[in-house]
Design a protein around this nucleic acid. Structure first.
Lengths: 111, 111
DNA sequence: CTAATATACAAAGGCAATCTATGTTGTCAA
DNA sequence: TTGACAACATAGATTGCCTTTGTATATTAG
């Protein structure tokens, strides 16, 4: 499903923000979650995700904290107030963009 | 409408191919057409389009020819047989990708 | 008739998000 | 104890597009 990796561009941030709108998650969990939910259209790897998470943290969109438990300690991410606002805006915009693109790409009517 | 230029990535080629599936067009015309049809979500400029057209021609997806007429001579583009096939495939794939992304970005249900 | 604007094509150079690749540490099952 | 997997991390390369600049012609305004 790697027909066009370029399409993924600009989607990582907004997908992360949307995921965290439901509840806190740790990085590795996001990867599994997205790859399952997208019916194979997304194929996230660590290298795609972690740099982006760090950037979002630097931008004040998310905060992180360690949580101990069974297994290895995990770094959970949570939305800041700003992040929660931006999540809605960007998700809305991106859905509208998808709609506009799909419209442009409608099948050509048969003669 | 330049909230996220990265979203445009990987869309230029498929949109061109889809446009040419209807009838031949020249470059400048494509720009105007897309910017109108997309309700402002696309803001193509020359620098986005022409290099991509040349690439598609190099890849054997399109052919071009000059057409004289009133006004300045224009270079028209037309799909090759291969290009016509790829146009359908890529447009379909991209629409499915948009659907998958929109699904991921569904609004969070209110509590 | 002249200036300004729009049409039309072209290409060099740079950016920035992402991918590839690799590394580390810790856990668990065989 | 060895392999596989979980979990995080980052350096470096890639690449498509944007910005900028350039050319030339056509059209409209004044």
């Amino acid at each position: 499903m790697s027909e066009n990796k370029e399409l993924m561009r600009g989607t990582v941030e907004v997908v992360i923000l949307r995921l965290l709108s439901e509840h806190d998650l740790y990085g590795y969990e996001m990867i599994k979650l997205v790859n399952e939910r997208s019916n194979g259209y997304f194929e996230w790897r660590e290298g795609s995700l972690y740099p982006c998470l760090h950037k979002l943290e630097g931008d004040g969109m998310v905060r992180s904290y360690m949580r101990e438990g069974p297994g290895k300690a995990r770094r959970y991410y949570t939305l800041t107030e700003e992040g929660r606002k931006v999540a809605v805006e960007r998700a809305t915009f991106t859905r509208e963009f998808c709609a506009a693109l799909s419209l442009l790409l409608q099948p050509v009517p048969e003669a």
